[in-house]
Design a protein around this nucleic acid. Structure first.
Ligand code: MN
Ligand code: MN
Ligand code: MN
Ligand code: MN
Lengths: 149, 149
DNA sequence: ATTGAAATGTATCCATAGCTACATAATGGT
DNA sequence: ACCATTATGTAGCTATGGATACATTTCAAT
């Protein structure tokens, strides 16, 4: 059996938890970020101005309308939105459910950070990324903390 | 001027903060995730077994050795690591500095979540993703909370 | 009804980040 | 010294997500 031991390997055998799992979870969460941000934005825009258009999403997300178009095609393929050429964008029931969860979670993460003493500005900036990696267990802990303070 | 007003637009003009900025920040953080996870893993492996090899990184990160190879080429291009064919991987001074920061921040995020009542398992899983979106201000708030509890 | 500006769509390019399949190098056990 | 196993490297595929340049469609003002 070649290549088995390393320069000073015999000390610690294997780490207690498989670290590969944490990275896989992190990558999995990252893959859902786009869908979550889009459905959340579509729900926000529809609530705020009656409809969500491609330009609105592009402005809101800080990308070009081309990126929005291709992403919407993927979201439609995956059953989150329904679009017709040159028309407004609508969430499917599934997309609407996801949007509700994301809005709620986003709100909780922002409120939690502010309760902790983080400025409104930094809380909003950090939450936009953090929200996608907060498990239900951690979200519950955030909510407990908010209620207690 | 066509296409100016929307179905019930005149109510709220523009949101208080430009939301596009938060998404740009989030995407920027996301782009650094890979580099941060790799240098952190290289530092860990080097500390634990004297050297970091491609196979070790592949096992640790849960990807194939091919993915590790291409990523290392990018990290070398960007000045974080130095590699020679069929040899172990070394961090440059810059890579080492980044690794130290990442290890410290990772540790803080995990400890913070546990202090908040999150289980060790969930804390580790969530921290792997959250860490990359925690600003210095929020990190400082986490540290204050840990010290106070 | 016309028409020009805005919105939307399409073609094509680039970088990142995963994979399988195959080729070559290194090394420990014999 | 040999060689089988392991480690490493390379070729080429896919998907996501960003961009610019150009084409087409809509729609509000005239
Ligand atoms: Mn987000
Ligand atoms: Mn959000
Ligand atoms: Mn990480
Ligand atoms: Mn980490």
């Amino acid at each position: 059996m070649p290549r088995t031991d390393r320069k000073k390997a015999e000390a610690s055998a294997r780490p207690p938890v498989q670290p590969a799992e944490t990275f896989r979870r992190s990558r999995h969460d990252r893959a859902l970020e786009t869908a979550q941000d889009y459905v959340e934005a579509i729900a926000d825009l529809t609530a705020a101005q009656g409809e969500a258009r491609v330009v609105d999403l592009a402005r809101r997300l800080g990308v070009t309308h081309v990126t929005v178009n291709r992403t919407l095609a993927r979201l439609q393929r995956d059953g989150y939105v329904s679009t017709k050429p040159y028309r407004a964008i609508f969430l499917t029931p599934g997309g609407s459910r996801m949007a509700d969860e994301c809005r709620q979670r986003h709100q909780t993460v922002v409120a939690f950070l502010q309760t902790l003493g983080v400025s409104a500005k930094a809380a909003e900036l950090d939450a936009e990324g953090i929200e996608h990696h907060v498990s239900p267990e951690t979200l519950a802990a955030f909510e407990r903390f908010i209620k207690k303070h």
